[in-house]
C-alpha cells in the first residue's frame, strides 16, 4: 500500500502528539519514506480530547490529511467514540484496554487491545504508556520498521529517558507479537 493513514486519539498529557511524531519521523528520517504529521491544536487540545494524524507514503505526500484512517489508535473513551466510525472497514483498531470500553467491530476491522497504562506503571513511569502503545502499533501493523522506530525514539525523547522509553517500546512490541500469534491460532 503506497499511502497509509493513521490516526491516534487520546487526551492531553498522554503523549498522543509525541507518538505520532515518532512514527512520522521513523518513516521519514530512518526509512527513507515520506510522511506528514498533523495535529489538533488549541485550548481544546489541553487536557481534553487530543488527536494526531500521520500519512505515510512511498511517494511524496500531497494531500496531507487523514480522511479514512487505515489504522486507529485510541487511548481514551472519547477518542474511541469520536474516531471509530471514521476507521476504514478493512482497517486496524488498537485500543488501550483499561481506558476504552469497545463495542463490536465493523466489517473486516481487526481489533487488538493492550493494557498499556498498566505496563507503563510496571515499568515505573505511567508517562511511557504512549511508547508501550507505540511498540504495540509497530508489531501489530508492521507499517514502519521496528528499528526505524527505535532510532526515532532515541532521537525524540528527552535525554536520559532513552532506556526507559525503549524498554516501554519492547514491552508493547512483544505483546503485539503475541497478540498476532493468538490471532493466527484463532483463525487456524
Amino acid at each position: 500500500m503506497s499511502r497509509t493513514e493513521i490516526k491516534i486519539g487520546g487526551f492531553g498529557g498522554q503523549g498522543v502528539i509525541l507518538t505520532a511524531l515518532i512514527i512520522g519521523k521513523a518513516a521519514s528520517l530512518f526509512e527513507g519514506r515520506e510522511s506528514t504529521m498533523t495535529q489538533s491544536f488549541g485550548p481544546e487540545a489541553r487536557g481534553g480530547a487530543c488527536s494526531a494524524q500521520i500519512v505515510v507514503s512511498d511517494m511524496k505526500v500531497r494531500y496531507p490529511y487523514v480522511t479514512v484512517p487505515n489504522v486507529l489508535v485510541v487511548m481514551s473513551q472519547e477518542a474511541y467514540t469520536r474516531f471509530e466510525p471514521q476507521l476504514d472497514e478493512n482497517g486496524i483498531l488498537l485500543i488501550e484496554e483499561d481506558l476504552v470500553k469497545s463495542g463490536p467491530t465493523r466489517g473486516k476491522i481487526r481489533a487488538f487491545s493492550i493494557p498499556a497504562t498498566r505496563f507503563a506503571e510496571e515499568l515505573g513511569r505511567k508517562i511511557v504508556l504512549n511508547i508501550v502503545m507505540l511498540g504495540f502499533f509497530t508489531s501489530v501493523t508492521k507499517l514502519v520498521d521496528a528499528d526505524a522506530v527505535r532510532k526515532a525514539i532515541r532521537d525524540t525523547v528527552p535525554k536520559g529517558t532513552e532506556e526507559l522509553n525503549l524498554k516501554a517500546f519492547e514491552k508493547g512490541y512483544e505483546y503485539g507479537l503475541n497478540k498476532l500469534k493468538e490471532e493466527k491460532k484463532k483463525l487456524g
Binding site: 512520522g24 521519514s28 515520506e34 506528514t36 504529521m37 498533523t38 495535529q39 491544536f41 505526500v61 496531507p64
Partner: peptide, 10 residues
C-alpha cells in the same frame, strides 16, 4: 498559514 505552520514533515 496555520496548516503549513503546524504540519510536520521531513
Amino acid at each position: 498559514d496555520e496548516c503549513v505552520g503546524h504540519m510536520t514533515e521531513k
